[in-house]
Amino acid sequence: MAAFERKFTLQVPSSTENLALIRDFVTSVGRHAKLAEDDINKLELAVDEACANVIEHAYGHDATKEVIVRAIYDPDVLRVSVIDEGHGFDPTQVKQETLPQLIHEHASGGLGLRLIKSLMDDVSYEFTPGQKNELHMTKKIRKE
């Protein structure tokens, strides 16, 4: 374990009304970790997108399920994991269509993942559908 590593965990019912709570949690952790303000904004949006995906797709709006957000930081990097036990899916299989294609097909699927990849420095997945799915997102802490 790194000398100055800090861990925080939030566990909430799987409901979109808790997205505000989740955003408050990660922005608070981002400030503790001394992320730059624009990086906190990116972290907030990326984690919101990841949790909304879990609430809507992995759990199908079943509020008896729970979403876990785990944040760990040291002086160099902040790692956030979004963990669920729902119907996981392979994010690498999401088609990377252009915005005009998505509009034409009346599809907005994959927008959230596209945002997450654009906003974070590194994104990885571990998924075992129905057992445990984890989306790991990393943001480097820029030194002023």
Binding site: E44, L45, D48, I103, S108, L111, G112
Partner: peptide, 14 residues
């Protein structure tokens, strides 16, 4: 603040 859920609304009607 807007997330992809809001952006998707613009996309679905345009």
């Amino acid at each position: 603040y807007i997330s992809s859920a809001g952006l998707g609304v613009f996309m679905s009607f345009i």
